[in-house]
Protein backbone atom coordinates (compact mmCIF):
# COMPACT_ATOMS: atom_id res chain seq x y z
CA UNK A 1 0.00 0.00 0.00
CA UNK A 2 2.75 2.42 1.05
CA UNK A 3 4.90 1.47 -1.93
CA UNK A 4 1.98 2.15 -4.31
CA UNK A 5 1.53 5.59 -2.74
CA UNK A 6 5.27 6.23 -3.08
CA UNK A 7 5.21 5.16 -6.72
CA UNK A 8 2.31 7.53 -7.39
CA UNK A 9 4.13 10.36 -5.60
CA UNK A 10 7.21 9.77 -7.73
CA UNK A 11 5.06 9.72 -10.89
CA UNK A 12 3.44 13.05 -9.90
CA UNK A 13 6.84 14.57 -9.14
CA UNK A 14 8.24 13.46 -12.49
CA UNK A 15 5.16 14.71 -14.37
CA UNK A 16 5.38 18.07 -12.58
CA UNK A 17 9.05 18.43 -13.56
CA UNK A 18 8.20 17.77 -17.21
CA UNK A 19 5.20 20.14 -17.10
CA UNK A 20 7.36 22.88 -15.57
CA UNK A 21 9.95 22.48 -18.31
CA UNK A 22 7.24 22.57 -21.01
CA UNK A 23 5.78 25.64 -19.32
CA UNK A 24 9.20 27.32 -19.33
CA UNK A 25 9.82 26.48 -23.00
CA UNK A 26 6.36 27.84 -23.91
CA UNK A 27 7.13 31.03 -21.93
CA UNK A 28 3.92 30.87 -19.91
CA UNK A 29 5.37 32.80 -16.97
CA UNK A 30 4.24 30.20 -14.42
CA UNK A 31 6.60 29.28 -11.59
CA UNK A 32 6.46 25.94 -9.79
CA UNK A 33 4.08 27.24 -7.11
CA UNK A 34 1.59 28.76 -9.58
CA UNK A 35 1.84 25.70 -11.81
CA UNK A 36 1.08 23.32 -8.96
CA UNK A 37 -1.96 25.44 -7.98
CA UNK A 38 -3.12 25.38 -11.62
CA UNK A 39 -2.63 21.61 -11.78
CA UNK A 40 -4.80 21.20 -8.69
CA UNK A 41 -7.46 23.51 -10.14
CA UNK A 42 -7.49 21.46 -13.36
CA UNK A 43 -7.79 18.31 -11.25
CA UNK A 44 -10.85 19.93 -9.62
CA UNK A 45 -12.43 20.31 -13.06
CA UNK A 46 -11.77 23.99 -13.84
CA UNK A 47 -11.84 24.63 -17.59
CA UNK A 48 -8.24 25.32 -18.74
CA UNK A 49 -9.29 28.13 -21.08
CA UNK A 50 -11.17 29.86 -18.26
CA UNK A 51 -8.18 29.37 -15.97
CA UNK A 52 -5.86 30.96 -18.53
CA UNK A 53 -8.24 33.98 -18.62
CA UNK A 54 -8.03 34.15 -14.81
CA UNK A 55 -4.22 34.09 -14.85
CA UNK A 56 -4.05 36.81 -17.51
CA UNK A 57 -6.50 38.95 -15.50
CA UNK A 58 -4.42 38.46 -12.33
CA UNK A 59 -1.25 39.48 -14.16
CA UNK A 60 -2.90 42.55 -15.65
CA UNK A 61 -4.18 43.70 -12.25
CA UNK A 62 -1.00 43.03 -10.31
CA UNK A 63 1.10 44.69 -13.03
CA UNK A 64 -1.04 47.84 -12.84
CA UNK A 65 -0.61 47.81 -9.05
CA UNK A 66 3.14 47.48 -9.37
CA UNK A 67 3.21 50.24 -12.01
CA UNK A 68 1.25 52.59 -9.75
CA UNK A 69 3.66 51.74 -6.93
CA UNK A 70 6.63 52.70 -9.11
CA UNK A 71 5.01 55.96 -10.20
CA UNK A 72 4.29 57.03 -6.60
CA UNK A 73 7.71 56.07 -5.18
Amino acid sequence: MASAANANLNAVRETMDVLLEISRLLNTGLDMESLSICVRLCEQGINPEALSAVIKELRKTSESLKASENSTS
Binding site: N8, S23, L26, P48
Partner: peptide, 24 residues
Protein backbone atom coordinates in the same frame (compact mmCIF):
# COMPACT_ATOMS: atom_id res chain seq x y z
CA UNK B 1 0.76 6.69 -15.39
CA UNK B 2 1.37 10.44 -14.96
CA UNK B 3 -0.02 10.26 -11.42
CA UNK B 4 -2.47 13.03 -12.41
CA UNK B 5 -6.02 12.70 -13.69
CA UNK B 6 -6.08 15.80 -15.89
CA UNK B 7 -2.64 16.02 -17.46
CA UNK B 8 -4.16 16.92 -20.85
CA UNK B 9 -6.14 19.77 -19.26
CA UNK B 10 -2.90 21.15 -17.78
CA UNK B 11 -1.24 20.89 -21.18
CA UNK B 12 -4.22 22.73 -22.69
CA UNK B 13 -3.75 25.50 -20.09
CA UNK B 14 -0.04 25.80 -20.97
CA UNK B 15 -0.96 26.10 -24.67
CA UNK B 16 -3.40 28.92 -23.84
CA UNK B 17 -0.71 30.71 -21.81
CA UNK B 18 2.08 30.13 -24.35
CA UNK B 19 4.01 33.33 -24.99
CA UNK B 20 1.98 35.30 -22.47
CA UNK B 21 4.95 36.14 -20.25
CA UNK B 22 7.47 38.81 -21.21
CA UNK B 23 10.56 37.26 -22.84
CA UNK B 24 13.43 36.54 -20.49
Amino acid sequence: SSGLQEVDAVLELLVHLAGSAPPA
